[in-house]
Amino acid sequence: MPYKACIALSRRVPEILLERLREHADIRMPESDAPPDLVSLMREADYALVIPGDRVDRALLDACPRLKMVSTVSAGFDHIDVDACTAWNVRVCNTPGAVVASTADMAFALLLSAARRVVEADAFVRAGRWNKEAAPLFGMDVHHKRMGIIGLGRIGMELAKRARGFDMDVAYHNRRRLSPEEEERLGVRYLNLDTLLEQSDAVMVQVPYGSATHHLIGAPQLARMKPSAVLVNTSRGGVVDDAALAEALRQGRIAAAGLDVTEGEPEVHPELLKLPNVVLTPHSGASTRETHLRMTLEAFDNLLDAIHGEPLRNCVNPAKKEESA
């Protein structure tokens, strides 16, 4: 009888979604919705499906010698020790394509909420302060303003599309400048980072986190922004220096901010929590039912690619032969 691969799922998945996987592998998953003991679950597994709350580290890899690949139901992979996986010859795959549109939606929602003071206005009404004598809560127009996107990857490009619907002028900064043809197609223009910060009414941060982007936006960069500007971060905590941001907001050096991610999340800098001009959401850019389904199916596709020996489309640590293919 031919060997059938074993896939360990760190959370329960509706049976209707598992039909494709069961055709090609035996499935192990927890008996309840409680977070499982990953070592016990994955010890005999060839492949694993995990979520951001699951820590894949050297200890887990040591205990799971059969493991060949880990597929995470997320775009980010901070919860996985990729270097250790590479050393153990374990491939790591994520689901970046599924989150693009919904994350761009969230970024624009944060921009509108912060610029138009939506959360403050909601609290104002709920507190019974809305009456004929009440002063209006003036915010900032978003339409016909300039958006500066730091990191024009797939999510950044979706942001640019949405900005055009608001008749915004869109500038961007990337490590690699796009071709003139791509810039014309997207309706964007390139600026160096300092100029983008100085000229933009809305600064949208959408870069991966790493040593090169740690505190990419700190006190010196915030000082370059307009006093009327809004900063939005839907990338990763740590890209923005939250302490410096809180001070800039408190002193009115920028007008407002919208953050879906924070340093050390789920912890939030205490000074940010005190400020009315920052909108905070709990890293929920991809938190829609439709997007979560797409993420799960994309993670399944990653597993099936591995089982069938196909090139891994979303591999963050490809083997040398995959890199050269």
Rank of each mutant, 00 (worst) to 15 (best):
A223V: 02
V240K: 05
E182L: 14
A223T: 09
D260A: 07
L197Y: 08
P276Q: 03
N233C: 05
L249I: 11
G238T: 10
A243I: 00
E265R: 09
P282G: 04
A248Y: 06
S211I: 09
A202G: 11
F300N: 02
R250K: 15
E263W: 03
D301E: 15
H283R: 05
R253G: 12
V240D: 12
Y190S: 15
R253F: 00
G264Q: 15
M204A: 07
D201L: 08
N302W: 09
P208N: 09
L275Y: 09
G258A: 06
R177C: 00
S200F: 06
V261D: 10
P270H: 09
A246C: 02
L197M: 13
V261E: 08
Q199S: 14
L245A: 10
S200V: 08
N233I: 00
L197F: 03
E198T: 13
V278L: 06
K226T: 04
S211F: 00
A256H: 01
E265F: 04
R177T: 11
N192H: 14
V232A: 02
V268E: 14
P220Q: 12
L197K: 05
L216N: 03
N277H: 04
D242V: 00
E263N: 12
L178N: 06
S228C: 10
V239K: 13
G237F: 03
E198G: 14
A286I: 02
S200Q: 07
V239G: 03
G187Y: 01
E267V: 13
N233T: 04
P220N: 12
E271V: 11
Y190M: 11
V240E: 06
A286H: 01
Y209L: 15
